[in-house]
């Protein structure tokens, strides 16, 4: 009894004030703690860096509350009709579809070159670096940059969105491909199959559903990107109408109507993609 008491004393870690410590003080805990601290400090500092030009907080809040009430409780159309509304939504969806479909096709080829189990290390590295660069440039900047060469319109919008979609999908696709059972590839290689045979008969069949789900997830994102491009880069569609209604006509009812339209489509897309995710990705997958 006496000896075990002494041994326990030796095992106990104590804090500076003599109290017994119950945390292990490992790397993970301290990394978590530090991250939280740094983020908190940065958040506090950031309010000193803000530009508060023309802000009248109290008035802004009451006004916004009023605006939101008008928007969501009394939505209506005044500058265009239902037919036009459907057409504009169609344009936005169309931009999303084009960027997603072309993006998926290009990404498929690039991801085969980026996947470490199918490609050479230098090629895979190069593609990854290029993709990281493309991803770092905000989509709207790509669209605006393309607009200089192609003129404002659907071409610039699709090309700009395409860049980002490709970058996103290459990352997702190549990770999915890298998870293909190495046995399958080895077995095909052993039969003397060519690289293309391995891809078509070994890799694609076992990853196809994943790739499709990822593509659909990207379509969900691309819809809201297309709305944004309409508003910020003149790409047309429902986003542009939203921009006009709020920035030019100050027509809150129309803003409300458009917001509802976007909301409904976004929720439908989200429900579908959640189903796909639960079905094809058993454990949760990071975006």
């Amino acid at each position: 009894m006496e000896t075990s008491q002494a041994m326990n004393q030796a095992l106990m870690k104590r804090k500076r004030n003599g109290q017994i410590n119950i945390k292990s003080g490992n790397k993970i805990d301290s990394a978590v703690k530090w991250t939280i601290w740094v983020l908190t400090v940065l958040t506090v500092i950031s309010f000193f860096f803000f530009d508060y030009t023309g802000l009248q907080l109290e008035r802004a809040i009451t006004e916004t509350a009023h605006n939101l009430r008008v928007m969501f409780l009394e939505p209506g159309l005044s500058h265009f009709g239902w037919g036009e509304a459907f057409y504009q939504v169609g344009i936005t969806l169309g931009l999303g579809v084009l960027a997603t479909v072309f993006g998926a096709i290009i990404a498929l080829f690039l991801s085969l070159m980026a996947a470490e189990n199918l490609s050479k290390p230098w090629l895979s590295k190069t593609i990854r670096i290029i993709v990281a660069f493309i991803r770092a440039v905000p989509t709207v900047l790509w669209v605006l940059i393309f607009a200089i060469a192609a003129g404002l319109g659907s071409e610039a919008a699709v090309l700009g969105m395409l860049f980002h979609s490709v970058a996103y999908l290459v990352k997702a696709f190549s990770e999915a491909i890298e998870e293909v059972n190495p046995g399958i590839i080895e077995a095909l290689r052993a039969t003397g199959s060519s690289w293309w045979h391995i891809v078509v008969h070994g890799v694609l069949p076992s990853t196809f559903t994943y790739l499709l789900s990822w593509t659909f997830l990207r379509f969900e994102i691309n819809f809201s990107v297309a709305v944004a491009m309409g508003a910020a880069a003149g790409a047309g569609g429902i986003g542009f109408e939203l921009f006009m209604a709020s920035g030019f006509y100050f027509d809150l009812r129309e803003v409300g109507f458009i917001t509802y339209a976007i909301l409904i489509i976004a929720i439908v897309l989200e429900v579908i993609s959640t189903r796909l995710k639960n079905r094809y990705f058993p454990s949760s997958v990071k975006a």
């Binding site: 075990s4 326990n8 106990m12 109290q19 119950i22």
Partner: peptide, 12 residues
């Protein structure tokens, strides 16, 4: 501190 010591005692 008593609780922590008790915990060590039980673990021991």
């Amino acid at each position: 501190e008593e609780e922590k010591e008790r915990a060590f005692f039980l673990l021991d």
